[in-house]
Amino acid sequence: MIERVRLTRYVSPFREGGSLPGLMEADDEGTYVVKFRGAGQGPKVLVAEVLCAGIAGLLGLPVPRLVEAELDAAFGRLEGDQEVQELLRASTGPNLGVDFLPGAFDYSVRAFPVDAEFVSRVLWFDALVNNVDRSWHNPNLLWWHREPVLIDHSAALTFTTTGRARVPIRHGRTLRASTCCSGSPPMWTRLTRHWLRCWTRTRCARSPPRCPTPGSSRNRGSAAPRSFGRRT
């Protein structure tokens, strides 16, 4: 089950994304990028984030740790920015916290090459979850501790917002794979019917694994936000 934390401090907003997520501290001394249920896209995109992170973790793809972030009503009264204040008021209660990765860079294929096997797994995963938001201009990847990390799957599982699935956009130019199918047999065998059933049940859901890094991702005392990703 996903860990629950209580938010204690609002640090700053991420204005690069339309949903206006915020960098916040919690009572576990961790720092999180919080995606709010009161944003225009609604809570369904948060459900998509949780499901996709769980599936990605099962397939061995690195994703940040997710938490259920409890927001107190007092935040909406104390924030000075009116836009942020209205968002916080509409998001009282549980929201989605994504572990903040201090010092992470936006991924660039020229600066941070990755192997073809990893690329094939990402392509296979995006096709599985119907992710329409990973592209040449917006790969939704971070480079952290010399490893790629997948982020931002709110546009995946598009039936949650449109009522029907769509074909994912092609992004093979961003991550050059030798083949999209080389990793398919060992990957799909991990997605058993029992696991999928358990993951979609609230009480049986397992928390996505921590991002594999040499140190803790709690980032105590981290500095101002670096690069979480341009679009959220």
Rank of each mutant, 00 (worst) to 15 (best):
M1T: 10
M1P: 14
V5Y: 08
R9Q: 12
Y10G: 12
S12N: 08
P13A: 02
F14S: 00
E16H: 01
E16C: 07
G17Y: 11
P21E: 02
D27R: 07
D27K: 09
D28Q: 03
E29L: 07
E29Y: 03
G30K: 07
G30F: 08
G30C: 03
Y32E: 00
Y32L: 02
V34E: 01
K35F: 01
K35T: 04
R37W: 01
A39V: 04
G40Y: 14
G40H: 13
K44F: 03
L46V: 10
L46M: 06
V47A: 15
C52L: 10
G54E: 10
I55E: 00
L58C: 14
P64Q: 11
D72R: 01
F75W: 08
E79T: 15
Q82G: 13
E83P: 10
E86A: 06
R89A: 05
R89W: 07
S91H: 06
S91V: 03
G97V: 10
G97Q: 06
V98C: 13
D99V: 09
F100A: 07
L101A: 07
F105D: 11
F105K: 15
D106Q: 10
D106H: 14
R110K: 15
A111T: 15
F112L: 01
V119S: 11
S120T: 05
S120L: 11
V122M: 10
V122N: 06
A127Q: 11
D133R: 07
D133E: 06
D133T: 02
N138Y: 03
N138G: 03
P139R: 03
W144N: 00
W144R: 05
H145D: 03
R146G: 02
E147A: 05
V149E: 03
V149R: 12
S154W: 05
A156H: 04
T158M: 11
F159I: 10
T161N: 09
G163Y: 10
G163H: 08
R166G: 03
V167G: 07
P168A: 01
I169F: 12
I169H: 12
L175E: 08
T179Q: 09
C180L: 14
S182I: 13
S182G: 06
L191G: 06
L196G: 00
T202M: 15
A205G: 03
C211L: 14
T213E: 09
S217Y: 05
S217H: 05
N219P: 14
A223G: 15
R226E: 12
F228T: 00
F228M: 12
R230E: 10
